[in-house]
Design a protein around this nucleic acid. Sequence first.
DNA 1: GTCTATACATCGATAGAC
DNA 2: GTCTATCGATGTATAGAC
Lengths: 195, 195
Amino acid sequence: MLETKANVILAGALREFLENGYKGTSVDRLAKAAGVSKPTLYNHFKDKEALFAAVIRQQVRIFYQDVAVLAIDMPVSGDPKVLLHSIFSAMLTRMLNNTDKHQDFIRLMIGESGRFPHLAQEVAKSIHKPVIDKLSQILKLHPEIDCLDPDMTAASILGSLIYFVMTQYILHASEILPLERDRYINQLVEMAVGY
Amino acid sequence: MLETKANVILAGALREFLENGYKGTSVDRLAKAAGVSKPTLYNHFKDKEALFAAVIRQQVRIFYQDVAVLAIDMPVSGDPKVLLHSIFSAMLTRMLNNTDKHQDFIRLMIGESGRFPHLAQEVAKSIHKPVIDKLSQILKLHPEIDCLDPDMTAASILGSLIYFVMTQYILHASEILPLERDRYINQLVEMAVGY
DNA sequence: GTCTATACATCGATAGAC
DNA sequence: GTCTATCGATGTATAGAC
């Protein structure tokens, strides 16, 4: 990534928006976070909304590539239970990668999905859909997995994994609703494969 | 519900916060929405945060009672598949009840879970946990349902149902990720019961 | 292109009259 | 308890010098 001024602004804006949300982040803070003045910021981005959209779209691209890499590395053969376990585990690991602040991104995107419906749709299209499609494809590839409706199954599995992140990290409820990671994954595998 | 001034303020604040989020709602708007002046509002609530907390806690109480009623009305005997289908369907219907604006509530609560972690925990404790416990209890009551880990299963089922609402209504992705309600529920039932 | 300085609206919260 | 009026701070965005 080139250290252009636009990229410096984007990097600072990402941190600030993730931390304080759209309305909770002032343009002053955005300028300060990037180490530039406000007019400079407005010189690179039309307004606050445009900067926010650029930040989100950059993250969407990063996650999209992430998903693609994950899909390539995925094993496709072997015992279905072992296979699915490693896939679900890799997905969760990716979502819990703290340096990527994925949890804050989910919080931000859901929180702003009313104000920015189009951005929310881009997230669904470029992140959720590829994951679901890939998962569905894997389910179909394995006849031992007695799955009647792979598309719906894939979606509900992704939902379950996101819910794990949501309760444990986003809603800060790991003590109220303790979900042990490995038990959760194992259970999902059992449900998906059938008994 | 008594039409006290505090309740009028709460009702207006609920609408405004659901629509525009915490930072997106000004105290001026809150006062106008209730048809009172700002000093009157501050006479009933310490500050904006206190009013927000009161709004959320009121909704939590309402949803809590809702869950309790749902639990009472739940059938506990009969064919497991029919039973689970009716339970999942009732849960989704409740979450999609537009007059209750449950979708906006989810968006609001997740969006503000960083700023108000304690409120998020109250939601988890008073809404999610009872649902999961009840669901787990039902799974245990039916030995025909070959469920190795009812607690994890119940949580992941709730997660799947919430994900349905999230994609279709919160992220506005019903065209990008079309999930047909009955197919989704049927698939969840199949997964839960085993084949 | 980048800055200082600032315009102008709105923010949360309150004083003081009634 | 309720209002009008207003506080100081902060909001987004821009003019004009360099």
